[in-house]
């Protein structure tokens, strides 16, 4: 395994880049705020206009933090899944984890109407959204895993992911038939995916979940390295496969679930970022890859968000569209250049 020292310089540059992109992201938006005012606002001195201060602290800052958490978290969950399933095409979106999370949220938002009244209102708190969404992705993850135990075919699990996508669409269609316009609109907007409009409370919950998920992943990095050799080799080196698999599933579900709950289903970050990272870090050692993927993911989604808010205009485009527009060509480019995707 290559030592961390080899990559220390790269990590420094990446962290610096992250800070720069973070500041650019906060400085840009539909309302022009001078850079000096942005710095003053962030440092607690307060921007000269109250509206600027409000935009900075209660809109742009939570959005930027959400972007960092979402990008980093999705990328880490993608890396975990690629190693666990030993499949370069695995990712939270491809394998239907995002669909599962959507299903959980659909039941919550659209189903809340059928319970109705006060109970429905309580159900729609931020925590319940996270729990429903994480439960959804956990169930899909279990289903996919059950299939991989039965069928040793990398194609099979991708098909399972597709099927879950269809099932979600079907169930959502049935639910929306019975729900009112307001709930339907709420669900549709959620499913577009959005990093903005997060309350500080929501950002706090998201951060908590992401830190927990990422911590579990770092804790498993040695086991993840062993899994690179395959299950039988890992077993022969004394690894507890069941315990490791369980920890990885929990970490992935927490990450994919909580992120999808707050930001909606976001495509391609989980799949593309690990592959993109491998272009710069030619190592398979997870104790290097995990932090690298984390920073790359945060960086990518911050950039995507900066593009999505269409600087100097009053329009924003859905973040999901931007990640797909950037992510899909990246995957195709990697495939064409390398002829194959390795993990």
């Amino acid at each position: 395994m290559k030592s961390k020292q080899t990559y220390r310089g790269t990590f420094c540059i990446l962290t610096l880049l992250l800070v720069v992109v973070f500041l650019i992201n906060i400085s840009l938006g539909s309302v022009y705020i001078p850079f000096s005012e942005v710095i003053a606002g962030l440092l607690g001195e307060g921007a000269s206009k109250e509206s600027w201060q409000y935009i900075l602290i209660d809109y742009r800052l939570p959005k930027a933090i959400t972007a960092i958490m979402t990008g980093g978290g999705l990328a880490v969950s993608g890396l975990l899944m690629q190693t666990l399933f030993r499949n370069p095409l695995a990712g939270p979106f491809v394998l239907g984890l995002s669909s599962g999370a959507s299903l959980g949220v659909a039941f919550l938002i659209l189903g809340a109407g059928t319970i109705g009244g006060v109970a429905g209102g309580i159900l729609l708190s931020e925590w319940s959204l996270v729990i429903a969404s994480a439960a959804g992705s956990f169930l899909v993850m279990l289903a996919v895993l059950a299939v991989t135990f039965k069928i040793k075919d990398t194609m099979a699990i991708l098909i399972i992911g597709l099927m879950f996508g269809s099932v979600t669409a079907a169930v959502v269609a049935v639910l929306s038939y019975f729900s009112n316009a307001e709930q339907l609109q709420q669900y549709i907007f959620w499913s577009f995916g959005s990093l903005g409009n997060q309350s500080w409370n929501g950002v706090f919950i998201l951060t908590l979940c992401c830190v927990a998920g990422v911590a579990l992943s770092f804790f498993s990095s040695k086991s993840l390295n062993a899994l690179l050799l395959g299950e039988n080799y890992a077993k022969s080196m004394g690894l507890h496969i069941k315990r490791t698999t369980f920890i990885i599933i929990i970490a992935t579900s927490i990450l994919a679930g909580s992120i999808t709950a707050f930001a909606g289903p976001i495509a391609f970050v989980g799949l593309a970022v690990p592959h993109l990272t491998r272009q710069f870090f030619t190592t398979s050692n997870h104790s290097i890859l995990l932090p690298a993927v984390l920073i790359f993911g945060s960086l990518l989604l911050l950039i995507c968000d900066t593009i999505a808010q269409l600087p100097f205009s009053e329009y924003t485009i859905p973040i999901n569209a931007v990640t797909s527009l950037i992510g899909a060509p990246v995957v195709i480019w990697l495939l064409v250049r390398k002829r194959k995707l390795l993990f």
Binding site: L228, Y233, G238, L342
Partner: peptide, 22 residues
């Protein structure tokens, strides 16, 4: 084993170092 390691992206040094895992 007869099966090839799941990841072919490992370098030789990384693969051999994994033998120290226990």
């Amino acid at each position: 084993l007869t099966e090839t390691p799941a990841s072919k992206n490992l370098t030789v040094l990384e693969l051999v170092s994994l033998g120290r895992q226990p």
